[in-house]
């Protein structure tokens, strides 16, 4: 109940950060954990439904000569398959469904966030961090599963003189350990910064007098276009980096 009051307190503010507030639509609890159905959950489920129905409906005809929807579905498939093949080679295709899910999920969440008044799930550090942590843990597990303790050689680059090792190995180790942080913060900060910026400029349109309103409106329109690019680019980058990390684990060379 204290939380409900807290949420109500948040909802009253209309600062640039109000758009990121989590609102509990259906309070739920499971084994003492709060698993309320929030606006964030709503958009996750929406993304899930949209992606599934689109991909399944688009492929319902299974035409040899694709129609419009089917060719969109196929080009998304080929796009991600291209990233996987380029970074991991043919054998990497066994991780393709996983990589594809990451890409399409983040892309859809980013794009849904671009709808005015909607909620951007990926603008929350906990969500992006969970995704990045999943990638990092999966990659590390695959690395150890495939190479055993030999996977630790990843931190000892070839061709480095041995007296540099005390310097290089900690750097490599830290850069490996920092991966989930940089991966998650990149996505989160991009989405949050972009949406905050849009909101700040949009609020200028309200506060400025008459004609001057045009400038923030024009800027917001232009910046919205850039944000669409960023929304796609960040999903792409997340996917490419996932593939690069996977490649480290699978092939063990830089």
């Amino acid at each position: 109940m204290a939380e409900a009051a807290d949420v109500a307190g948040h909802a009253e503010s209309h600062g640039p950060m109000a758009q990121f507030e989590i609102k509990r639509l259906v309070p739920l609890e499971l084994f003492g954990y709060d698993i309320s159905f929030t606006n964030s959950s709503l958009f996750m489920v929406l993304a899930l439904v949209l992606i599934s129905t689109f991909l399944i409906l688009a492929m319902s005809r299974r035409a040899l000569v694709p129609g419009r929807l089917q060719s969109i579905a196929e080009s998304v498939y080929e796009f991600v398959a291209g990233i996987v093949r380029e970074n991991l080679g043919k054998e990497g295709m066994r991780y393709f469904p996983w990589v594809f899910t990451i890409f399409i999920f983040i892309l859809t969440l980013n794009m849904l966030g671009m709808i005015p008044g909607s909620f951007t799930v990926t603008s929350h550090i906990i969500v992006t961090f969970a995704l990045a942590a999943m990638v990092w843990i999966t990659v590390t597990l695959i690395g150890f599963a495939r190479h055993g303790l030999g996977y630790l050689k990843l931190f000892v680059p070839e061709g480095v003189p041995f007296w540099l090792m005390p310097l290089i190995v900690p750097i490599e180790l830290v850069s490996y350990l920092i991966r989930p942080v940089s991966l998650s913060v990149r996505l989160f900060a991009n989405m949050m910064a972009g949406h905050t910026m849009l909101k700040v400029f949009a609020s200028f349109a309200v506060s400025l007098p008459f004609v001057a309103k045009a400038f923030p409106v024009l800027f917001t329109a232009a910046f919205t276009g850039l944000e669409f690019l960023v929304a796609f680019l960040q999903a792409f980058i997340f996917t490419v980096l996932t593939c690069i990390y996977l490649n480290d684990a699978v092939h063990m060379h830089h």
Partner: peptide, 16 residues
């Protein structure tokens, strides 16, 4: 694009 994202992320850490 990877280079762009890496460079941009560094700046965004500061913005964050």
């Amino acid at each position: 694009l990877i280079g762009f994202a890496l460079a941009e992320a560094t700046g965004l850490f500061g913005l964050l």
